[in-house]
Every structure is written in C-alpha cells, then in structure tokens.
Simulated scan of single mutants.
Amino acid sequence: MRNLPAFTLAGYDKGRGKLVQALWFAVMNTVFMAWFCPAGLRVALLRAFGAKIGDGVLIRHRVRILWPWKLTVGDHTWIGEGAWLLNLEPVTIGAHVCLSQEAMLCTGSHDHRAADFRYRNAPITVADGAWIAARATVLAGVSVGSQSVVAAGTVLHKDLPDLTLHTADGRRPVQEPV
C-alpha cells in the first residue's frame, strides 16, 4: 500500500537555491512563456539561468522548462510551442533537433514498488538530427538516437537507436529523403 505522506525529496538536488528557483518561476511565467517574448530573449534568459544553449536555437512561446541549469541544447535546434521539458535531471538535446508542439521530455518518475513512492529520475539525451513530433513523450532515462523520429502522440520508454522511427505500432528504419 502507498504511504504518500512518507514521500520526501531526500537525495534529490534541484541544483540551485530557493531564491534562484523562485526567480526562474517568476521569469518563466511572466516573460519567457509569453507570446510577445522574442525567441532571442528566451535564449538569453535560459543562458542567464545557467542553460547551455547553442547558436541559432529557436524556442517558441508557451515552452515550459523546469530547471534551465539542467538543460543543454545544441546549435540550430527548434523547440515548438507548448513543449514541456520536465527536467528534474539533466536533459541534453543535440544540434538540428526538432521538438514539435506540445512534445514532452520527462526525466521524473516514481518507484511504484516503494511505499513512499520515492523519486526514480534519470536524464534524457536526444542526439543530433532527431525529431520528437507533436505531443510525443520521452520518459526518464531514455536516449533518442541520431536522426531518429518519435512519432506524434507516442510514448518512448526505452532507448531508440540511430535512424529509427518509433510509432505506436512498432519501430522501423527511418527512410532516406527522396
């Protein structure tokens, strides 16, 4: 039986103090996610809070990022409107990656076998050239291979090799462009 009141944050490191966390939440919810915030300012704000962001990165509005200091993004990557990076642990996104609208990268989970429902978090890596399509979800501890595709609306719970398409009905090689 679950004993949810026994849950604690023991062993979890948010990476910054409460003041920085509160400041980030204020900035994220008032400026960063707003439609009127220029994409370049979003990148600058993330860098100011410790994210490592490459050149030519485009971040659309309504993007939520839990902890910028646990985020690395390569050059010329796009993060689409409404994407959610629930990065309790590090998220590393390569170059020329497309995270489409409302895609979710979730590094957090719980140990369903433990009565206290303790955290069971793990980092996520998305390699160069990958595409996480609209409303796709990548779960904790998963690596997405180079040039791979996580199809729209699917959930990826284990590593995806390079050049592989993950769909609701299985995996197959990504076809070369015509």
Rank of each mutant, 00 (worst) to 15 (best):
T137C: 11
D55H: 15
A44E: 10
L165A: 08
R2I: 12
I65P: 01
R16D: 04
C37Y: 12
C37K: 08
A103R: 01
A34R: 15
G141E: 03
G170N: 11
V178Q: 10
A134T: 15
R42Q: 12
H76F: 12
L163A: 08
T8V: 09
P123G: 03
V174D: 06
H76W: 07
L85Y: 01
V142H: 02
M28P: 08
T154P: 05
E89K: 06
D128P: 07
A34C: 14
L165V: 04
N121V: 08
G40E: 07
H166S: 13
G80D: 04
G153F: 11
R42P: 04
D162R: 10
A134L: 02
G82I: 07
C98S: 14
S146T: 13
M1T: 07
E89D: 09
C106E: 03
E176C: 00
G40C: 13
Y12L: 12
H166D: 04
R118V: 01
F36Q: 15
L85K: 02
D162M: 05
A22V: 09
A39V: 10
V126H: 03
P161C: 08
N29K: 10
G56D: 10
W69C: 02
N29Y: 12
V73H: 00
A115T: 04
V144N: 06
K70Q: 05
V138T: 05
L66R: 02
N3P: 03
L66K: 00
F36D: 12
E89I: 03
M28A: 14
P38Y: 11
L105V: 04
D111A: 14
K52T: 14
A115S: 14
M1A: 13
L88W: 05
N121E: 07
F36H: 15
P90N: 00
V31Y: 09
R64Y: 12
A133Q: 01
L71E: 11
L139S: 08
R135S: 12
A26D: 10
V142E: 07
T125P: 06
A122Q: 05
L9Q: 13
L156N: 08
I132H: 01
R60C: 13
V144M: 07
S146G: 00
T125H: 03
D159T: 09
A44M: 11
D159C: 09
G74I: 10
I79S: 08
D169G: 04
D55L: 11
N87F: 02
V91T: 07
C106H: 02
R135W: 02
G108L: 00
D169R: 09
P5V: 03
A39D: 13
I59L: 11
T107R: 02
A136K: 01
P177D: 01
D55V: 14
V174P: 04
H166Y: 09
L4D: 06
L41W: 13
V73T: 08
L156E: 02
T77R: 09
L19P: 06
L165Q: 06
M28I: 04
A48W: 02
L41Y: 03
H112D: 10
L58P: 00
L66D: 10
A39P: 06
Y12H: 15
G11L: 05
G94Q: 11
E176F: 00
